[in-house]
Design a protein around this nucleic acid. Structure first.
Length: 465
RNA sequence: UCCGACGUAGCUCAGUCGGUAGAGCGGGUGGCUGUUAACCACUUGGUCGCUGGUUCGAGUCCGGCCGUCGGAGCCA
């Protein structure tokens, strides 16, 4: 039984049913044997009235006696393709009717505007070719738990909502790159293998590096400062690793971070850049991903309000405010998750909390000249309870102070000799920040957990798939 | 690491007072010319996480272990 018409490079082997996934190539891959133009669902509107070929997977299907509705996805979108029984041989019609979920197909037909379609168009199919009849697909169109879905993450990413989230992520990343590239920053990436702790405090992943140990980077910070002294304004953008035993919706062990660093820059300017940058990223996503945000049922009104200026809040004022709001936090404490939530709920746009206690921050953070208990640091807290998405500040430029801090944190001084050189040869005030991509995407998508914002999340207790 | 929940069919779950296993979905077969998580009928499907104990009898009660989920601390 030949399901594809004669001339096709692909056919179903004689004597076997579609269910046995019996498609083989009988020759080199050819374009379905048809002369029609290949199209993608994303841009289907420009093919209205034309005959096109679509290649994709069967997301879902329905049938009644005389017709079959194929829900096809081709990676760029989802579209309904309609087959009438009278237009096909009984074998082909039956094959379509029985094609399992996620089977791969090639269909040809006429693009027709239809008010009943969510995307406004349907395909009236005149040719159906089954490339591979899928085995029973584990992810059904009904509900599943997150544990099950995460175990099948390699398949879960085929679904509508995961498409929407990962497309938003791609736009966020592109917007990040465009912002820095267009504002005088040079991309200079920093190493993943590092010989020692950058910040000393958090846990590092260890790995064998020939005859010695190496650690996976938890921040490009120190190298970024060297790059800034070489190029002025730089940024690095890559994965970063934290071996923290954190089990919350905000944590991954492997996540992506962009870190700009600017020579001749103080805390105030750093905050202005962070603000300008975030406004840009949010507006780009609103422009480019309307359909995806709608699919995610994201209320975009709070995102539309992300405009300059953000609220700026001194740490001491933040503590006072939190106490008024009922938190039992005291001066000197770092914010807990609840504190961040309470605080951000007071504002309609991101909040920049600056001058945290030095004890809460990394050793390289500059002290506040007006109060040495404080650091010239800033965290940007996203609204709607999403919390910290940016952390940064002005760096210590004095060799003497920096050495004292290394001593105080009991860090191995030898490992920092090259870093001290940056303060020996033309030290300047400099500042920068880091933005966590997954937390930003989580916020923009309005979803609950960071794990869905990266194709293959790495978490405590999850290394597969 | 700590605290708290939960492990029953491929999936999501119910299972009363301890009395011998259920539903919906999925899969299969059939029906239907406009379905939208389609619908209707029939059908298939179980080492009740593992282990030890109490009991005439354990999915159910108790102990241990394993796993998953959520939260805390820490952080982006």
């Amino acid at each position: 039984m030949a399901i594809a018409p004669r001339g096709s490079g692909w056919s179903v082997l004689a004597g076997e049913s579609a269910r046995q996934r019996t498609v083989t190539a009988s020759g080199p891959f050819r374009r379905g044997g048809s002369m029609v133009e290949r199209a993608t669902i994303e841009t289907i509107a420009k093919h209205e009235g034309q005959e096109v070929e679509l290649r994709g997977w069967l997301f879902n299907k329905r049938s009644s006696g005389k017709l079959v509705f194929l829900q096809l996805r081709d990676g760029t979108g989802f579209m309904q393709c309609v087959m009438f029984k009278n237009d096909f041989t009984p074998e082909v019609f039956e094959a379509a009717k029985h094609a399992p979920q996620e089977s791969s197909l090639i269909v040809c037909g006429t693009v027709r505007a239809d008010a009943r379609s969510k995307i406004g168009f349907e395909l009236s199919v005149n040719r159906f070719e089954l490339l591979h009849a899928a085995e029973e697909y584990p992810i059904t169109p009904k509900e599943h738990g997150t544990g099950f879905l995460m175990d099948h993450r390699h398949l879960w990413i085929r679904s509508r909502l995961q498409h929407a989230v990962l497309r938003v992520r791609a736009s966020v990343i592109r917007a990040i790159r465009d912002y820095f590239d267009n504002n005088g920053f040079l991309l200079v990436d920093t190493p993943i293998f590092t010989p020692a702790a950058c910040e000393g405090t958090t846990t590092l992943f260890e790995t064998k590096y020939f005859e010695q140990m190496a650690y996976l980077t938890q921040s490009g910070q120190l190298y970024n400062e060297a790059n800034a002294m070489a190029f002025g304004k730089v940024y690095c953008f890559g994965p970063t690793f934290r071996a923290e035993k954190s089990k919350t919706r905000r944590h991954l062990t492997e996540f992506w971070m962009v870190e700009p660093e600017m020579a001749f820059c103080d805390l105030d300017e750093n905050m202005r850049v962070a603000e300008d940058f975030l406004v840009y990223v949010v507006s780009r996503v609103l422009d480019e991903r309307k359909i995806e945000l709608e699919a995610l049922e994201r209320d975009t009104a709070p995102l539309e309000r992300v405009q300059k200026p953000f609220h700026r809040l001194h740490y001491s004022d933040a503590i006072r405010k939190l106490n008024e709001l009922g938190s039992d936090i005291s001066w000197g404490d770092d914010f807990g998750g609840d504190d961040e939530t309470i605080l951000t709920q007071q504002y309609d746009r991101p909040v920049m909390v600056h001058r945290y206690p030095a004890a809460c921050k990394a050793f390289y953070m500059k002290k506040d000249p007006e109060d040495p208990r404080l650091s010239m640091s800033v965290d940007v807290l996203a609204p709607e309870g999403y919390g910290e998405i940016v952390g940064g500040g002005q760096r210590e430029e004095s060799l003497e102070n920096l050495m004292a801090e290394v001593e105080k944190h009991q860090l191995p001084r030898e490992a920092f000799e090259w870093y001290f050189d940056l303060r020996r040869y033309g030290s300047v005030p400099h500042a920068g920040f880091g933005l966590g991509v997954e937390r930003t995407v989580t916020w923009l998508c309005g979803i609950r957990h960071v794990r869905e914002t990266i194709a293959f999340p790495r978490m405590l207790e999850r290394l597969t798939p």
